[in-house]
């Protein structure tokens, strides 16, 4: 009853698996932002959260162009894998990236990476476009100027995000394929039940801490 009404996708599983490991070289000449994390990050990988913050705080168009060049082609691919044709996807990409610009003030680097945040906007656009529905969103958490996340929360979230990406890439192809299909909207609800329980690592407890700090910051006001 829940979920996809179409039959399960029959696309070639090996090409799906291959696409997952075929991660593109990140980066863009325009963006010289240094990675904040000195840990496992690729030395040349821009810190996309920092780029988004430049958009958020300075309405920096050059930063937007850099972000667009990296994410817009992936958003288009995500929408096409989710069932949109190339023309629809192209149009939705423009909406999604314009929404990124418009709503940048809501980006919280202690709770989401740039990729995560852009994913949520693309997903909501997909629900809107394909199902003509709005997605009910949780009530916003208490938020004030003092609630600006500290650097430690940001770094921690960034590291957890990198670990999660590595964990996804190192899963057996069958499991990774299942997760990708879930997020492309290709699984019914009972099939999704089989895709759960995969290692999310400690990102959940990291986000939980960031939420606690937000609440405490508001309680002190």
């Amino acid at each position: 009853m829940f979920g996809a009404t179409e039959p399960l996708d029959t696309r070639d599983a090996t090409s799906i698996a291959a696409s997952a490991i075929n991660r593109h070289v990140r980066g863009n000449d325009r963006d010289k932002a240094k990675p904040v994390s000195a840990g496992t990050a690729d030395e040349n990988a821009p810190d996309w959260a920092a780029v988004l913050i430049r958009i958020r705080d300075n309405r920096d168009e050059a930063a937007f162009v850099a972000l667009f060049r990296h994410f817009a082609p992936r958003v288009k691919a995500f929408l096409m894998r989710s069932g949109a044709d190339a023309a629809q996807a192209e149009e939705c990409v423009q909406d999604v990236m314009a929404t990124v610009w418009q709503k940048a003030a809501q980006f919280d680097p202690a709770r989401a990476s740039a990729a995560t945040w852009i994913f949520t906007i693309a997903r909501n656009r997909r629900i809107d476009a394909l199902r003509k529905q709005k997605r009910p969103e949780p009530e916003d958490l208490p938020w004030g100027p003092e609630a600006e996340p500290d650097q430690e929360d940001r770094l921690g979230l960034q590291q957890e995000t990198e670990h999660l990406g590595e964990a996804l890439a190192s899963l057996p192809a069958k499991q990774r394929d299942l997760i990708e299909k879930a997020y492309f909207g290709d699984l019914t609800h009972s099939e999704i039940a089989e895709a759960t329980g995969l290692p999310l690592g400690t990102i959940k407890s990291r986000i939980r801490l960031a939420l606690q700090r937000l609440r405490h910051a508001m309680d002190r006001k």
Binding site: P73, A77, T120, P138, L168, I207
Partner: peptide, 25 residues
């Protein structure tokens, strides 16, 4: 607790998006 769990699952969606082979615009 469930908010953190939802946002962690969104992070998994972000990782899927990031690993998707890019389409030409």
């Amino acid at each position: 607790d469930c908010r953190a769990a939802v946002e962690a699952h969104d992070a998994l969606g972000g990782a899927v998006l990031d690993a998707t082979e890019a389409e030409t615009l």
